[in-house]
Amino acid sequence: MTSTARVTPRPQVRDWPLFWSKVGRIVGKVILYAVLAFGAYIFFLPFAWMVTTSLKPAAYAYEVPIQWFPKKITLDAYFYGWKTLPFPLFYRNTIIITAANIVGLVLSSSLVAFAFARIPFAGRDAWFLILLSTMMLPAQVTLIPIYLFWSKLRAVNTFWPLIVPEWLTNAYNVFLLRQFFMTIPLDYDDAARIDGASWFRIYSQIIVPMSKPALGVIAIQAFAWNWNNFLGPLIYLNETRKFTISIGLRLFQNQQSSKMPETMAMSVVALIPTLIVFFIAQRYFIQGIVITGVKG
C-alpha cells in the first residue's frame, strides 16, 4: 500500500484488439468454471460414494470400477445395522444430550455475554481479559481432573459430565455473543433504565429479542459440536445402552470393520441430522464462521 499515490495517473494499458480481449475473457470464464466444477466434484464424491455404497447389496458393493447407479438397490445394510446395535437408543441419548446442551449453552452464554457487553460493573475488563486468555487452553489439560471430579461424584456413565459444563458456558461462545451485543446501541438500555427496568428485563425483553440471529449461530454450533462430540462420551459413557451415536458408530465399526455397505449405512444414519439442520439453517452456519473470523 506504499506506492498507490503517483503524481500522474497512467492510462490503462490494454493494447489488445477488442476481439482478442473478449476471447480471453470467455476462455478465462470457461477455465474458471471448469476448475470450480472439478473441485466441487472431488469434494462431493465421497458423499455420493457413501450413499450409493450403503444402498448396494453386499455382493455388488466391492465391484471395481464403482457402479455409481447400482443395478439393484436395497436397504439391507440399514436394517442390518439397526438390528445389530440399538441405534434408536443411541439416537435418543444423543438427542437428549444435544438438546439439553443447546438450551444450556444459549442461556448461559447469553447471560454472561450480556453482562460483559452492557453492565458497567467493577472488574469487568479484567474478567473479560481472563476469559479471552482461557480460549487458548487445550481441553486436555483439564480433562483428567474433571474426570476425577465426576468419578468421585459417581457420575461416570451418566449424562451429567456431558451436560453440566455446557450449562456453565464457555469462553468462545461468550466472546462471540459479546461481539454481537456490542453492536446494539446503548440508548436502548438507557431508555429502559430510566423507565425503571431491571438489567434482567433489559436482557430478556430488549437484547435477546434483538439478537436472534446470533443466538441462532450459538445454537447451531452447539448442535454440531454436541452431535459429533467423541472424546467426552468415549471417556464418560461405558455401558452400550448409554452410548451416543458417535461412540455407538465407533463400536459398530469396530465389530463389523469388514462390512462396507453396513458401516457406510450407519455413517449415513449418523450424518443425516447434521445435514438436515445444515440445509435448514445454512445461514446460521455461515454467519457463525464469519462473525468469529471478523474480529480476529
Binding site: 469434494f43 459429533n228 458417535s246 449418523a270 450424518l271 452456519f285
Partner: peptide
Amino acid sequence: PSVVSGVA
C-alpha cells in the same frame, strides 16, 4: 465437508 465431522 467441513460441517460434518467426527466418527461418521
